[in-house]
Amino acid sequence: MPLLQINHLTHFFGGLRAVHDFNLDLEKGELIGLIGPNGAGKTTIFNLITGAYRPTQGDIRFNGHNLIGLRPHQITAKGIGRTFQTIRLWNNLSVLDNIRIAQFAQIKYGVVDSILHTKRYREEEKEIEKRSLELLEVFNLRHLANEVVANLPYGQQREVEIVRALATKPRLLLLDEPAAGMNPGEIDALLKLIQWIRREFDLTIWIIEHQMRVIMGICERIKVIDFGETIAEGTPTEIQTNPRVLKAYLGEEGF
């Protein structure tokens, strides 16, 4: 059974058809890419999967469970983590708090525990903190744990966002243009990091990119959409030579 199954996904914003009849079977362990020009509907697909919007039509199954109608935090708790195209960290909180809060769904103690500081509360909080620090350690961010996020440089904020997504204990990680705003050197490092995360955390990864160049190297399979329609699907080489893709990207930036 595929990890993620999307059938006939369609979404309208008022009269605007942002996504049309999108289909996908994502197997466990895959690393795939979704590309398309500006406004093609890529981010909307992520928003539909994570429950930020409710699709006009179609169904989405994750690990056999229907996701339609679930609230975003429930979907996240089922094992789908994501990052955002424009960074959406909780800016005035510390790095550590950002990571801690992302483990909200794993909390089992109740309010009363948190108010009375019961044993259960202390144990769980200790565990959350330990795990957060370990995650930060892995990304060499531990020394920044108490830094307020807003004070970090852009690149580190991107990393913190990935760590935060991992803190939700995902099985599928959705990355929305992780390379946006990075220079070629940083992009190379990022791609290595992504491959490493995939192995280390045993993840299935789906990356949105706007620039084709970025994911050609690491994705096994790529889907191309334009104006909400799927216009191509295949290995990087197939995509690179597909005439419809070339046409969609003509005047954009080429290869």
């Binding site: 930020a52 975003p72 960290l89």
Partner: peptide
């Protein structure tokens, strides 16, 4: 506090 900082991100990040 996460709600104050970014409610949508909070909901999407499991809160």
């Amino acid at each position: 506090v996460a709600i104050r900082e970014d409610e949508i991100a909070a909901e999407l990040m499991s809160v």
